[in-house]
């Protein structure tokens, strides 16, 4: 395996597979929040490392695209580096760390702080696409629940959270309702990011490789985090200031910097932080 041109089709996947994925993507766009089964392929990286996102990105990429890959909000995390290098090798596309300059952004666990635009695609890596999975382990059951819009179980769970802990004890992968119809898992992003999905101008695509599901949120679509009137949803973050750029409105990483457990807080979105610093 030497280099891209000889050994691989553009963006690794063969055209038949890309067509199969694009069909699933179109279906997903047409039914916002609905999980479309697709014939996920084995990729040259393990399941759980973003194979779903990689397949969706591969199916979307064109030669003129500029790709950004983030993991935990940062372009520098090892798996983001690995996926970015993969596409540099098999697609030869330009890559960037600059959120504004990217046409396709693949992400794990974060939505960039900078507001996305209409000419961008945000591709999420999804481990468990089914928001009802931990309430009902059977796929055969949860598919019926979605079909019948039978979401009472989820509301009971949220209510029980409040009765036990005084608030909804979901901090990430916080369930949303898309276009007033499907309950959807936003992937394990912190709930701080949920409001960014609502009426987002960019296309949001979700790929779950191991679970063989694709779903989507079209541009300018209503995405509401589930809550109760007396317990409204709250996009929480550490109530601190970024010690690098001074931002007070971003999602922060908490870093232990010495043996005594001293903490430092800094932006999880490294590109956003860098752009404010310079």
């Amino acid at each position: 395996m030497s280099n891209s041109e000889e050994d691989f089709n553009f963006a690794y996947l063969d055209e038949q597979t890309k067509r199969m994925i694009r069909r699933a993507l179109i279906k997903a766009i047409c039914i916002p929040g609905y999980q479309v089964p697709f014939a996920s392929r084995e990729m040259p990286m393990p399941y759980g490392w973003g194979t779903g996102g990689v397949q969706v990105t591969a199916a979307c990429l064109q030669e003129t695209d500029v790709l950004k890959v983030i993991d935990q909000g940062s372009d520098d995390t090892t798996n983001a580096v690995s996926i970015r290098k993969f596409f540099e090798r098999v697609a030869g596309v330009k890559t960037t760390e600059n959120t504004g300059k990217a046409s396709v952004i693949q992400t794990r666990h974060r939505i960039p702080e900078q507001v996305l635009s209409e000419d961008q695609i945000l591709v999420y890596q999804v481990p468990i696409p089914e928001p009802l999975r931990f309430l009902e382990p059977r796929e055969t059951e949860t598919r019926v629940m979605h079909a019948l819009e039978e979401y009472g179980l989820m509301h009971v769970k949220l209510y029980e959270d409040i009765s036990i802990n005084g608030e909804i004890s979901t901090a990430y992968a916080y369930p949303v309702k898309v276009n007033d119809r499907y309950i959807m898992d936003p992937s394990p992003t912190p709930k701080f990011d949920n409001p960014k999905m609502n009426f987002c101008p960019a296309i949001q695509l979700f790929g779950a490789g191991r679970e063989q599901r694709i779903y989507a949120v079209p541009p300018y679509t209503k995405v509401i985090s589930l809550d109760f009137e007396d317990y409204p949803f709250e996009a929480s973050r550490a109530e601190k200031t970024c010690e690098i750029c001074g931002a007070t409105n971003t999602y922060l990483d908490e870093v232990v910097i010495d043996d005594k457990g001293t903490r430092m807080f800094s932006c999880s979105d490294s590109d956003y932080c860098n752009s404010r610093k310079s």
Binding site: G48, D71, Q72, R108, Y172, L252, D253
Partner: peptide, 11 residues
């Protein structure tokens, strides 16, 4: 793999 964004939310 890193999960510190989610762990932060849990914290």
């Amino acid at each position: 793999l890193p999960h510190y964004v989610d762990f932060q939310a849990e914290l």
